[in-house]
């Protein structure tokens, strides 16, 4: 096959144009990889950067979501609502304050995903980590004001595991108790029931993506009191206390107790 100069130039033009078009597409893609804090991914979603490479944006998870929690993002979201509630076009998401996840036991959305952008290894919905509930505003939370609202605690599908009420004294009245809703990251799935049902105008408890909600301890930190922590166990043997079973020569204790000194008279039969 011979290549004429004309063909060479045409193809060079096309190759350059193709690179430019691709660069343009990448420039559209990369900034819109960010997602707003209230945008939550379906259960089992991979970490965001992997998710955007794995998701085909087919909407099969949306179709198989019984409570219609999930929706596909549209460019229109950007204009019709606030800018913040946008995410990569065509990808599935939900907003907890809008419709929270009902935590279906059979997790149909994950089963529907053809590309494992929703990880099929997730079989127990209690292991899902869609986000983490954070009591973002203690100043307006009714329980922190000393009232017994408790709604977030009551609606939590993992009540007493994901959210507990921690009793503390109300310093303001000095005689009442406060029951403070406390989220535990080892149990919270990020379903958003608490955020949805918060009675305030703006929810005081909000589900945030893990990356925003969680700190991360330096990897060299070891909690000595953690029973799972085996790395920092003391390497020396526990010191054993050797207490004398018999009185030693020169021991003064018996003298002080009024007993005969050891050796001065055999302690044969008790008291003198």
């Amino acid at each position: 096959m011979s290549l004429t100069r004309r063909q060479l130039l045409q193809n060079a033009t096309s190759a350059c144009t193709a690179s430019l078009v691709t660069a343009g597409a990448s420039l559209v893609a990369l900034p819109s990889m960010s997602r707003a804090a209230q945008v939550l991914r379906p259960p089992g979603a991979l970490a965001e950067d992997e998710f955007l490479g794995a998701c085909l944006r087919c909407g099969l998870c949306v179709r198989d979501c019984p409570p219609k929690t999930l929706k596909l993002s549209d460019w229109g979201d950007v204009l019709t609502r606030d800018w913040a509630s946008s995410t990569a076009v065509g990808t599935p998401y939900f907003e907890a304050r809008d419709v929270p996840c009902e935590m279906c036991e059979d997790i149909p959305c994950v089963k529907a995903c053809p590309t494992a952008a929703l990880d099929h290894k997730l079989t127990d919905i209690a292991d899902a980590r869609m986000g983490l509930a954070v009591l973002v505003d203690e100043e307006s939370c009714l329980n922190f004001l000393g009232l017994r609202c408790d709604v977030c605690y009551r609606v939590c599908p993992l009540i007493d595991q994901a959210i507990t009420l921690e009793k503390s004294s109300n310093a303001r009245s000095d005689r009442h108790a406060m029951f403070l809703p406390t989220v535990h990251a080892d149990a919270c799935t990020g379903c958003g029931k608490c955020e949805k049902s918060c009675v305030l105008e703006q929810a005081a408890i909000k589900v945030l993506p893990m990356t925003l909600a969680k700190g991360e301890l330096g990897h060299h930190y070891r909690k000595g009191w953690d029973s799972r922590n085996t790395v920092s166990q003391p390497t020396f043997d526990t010191p054993t206390q050797r207490l004398p079973e018999h009185l030693q020569p020169g021991e003064l204790t018996p003298l002080r107790s009024g007993q005969l000194p050891y050796g001065a008279g055999a302690p044969t039969g008790g008291k003198p």
């Binding site: 691709t22 660069a23 343009g24 597409a25 992997e50 998701c55 944006r57």
Partner: peptide, 18 residues
């Protein structure tokens, strides 16, 4: 090939944005 290369580099499905 350009789009496939860009997908490999960026780690996202580049063309699906546009």
């Amino acid at each position: 090939p350009c789009i496939l290369a860009a997908s490999a580099i960026t780690g996202v499905t580049v063309w699906e944005w546009v």
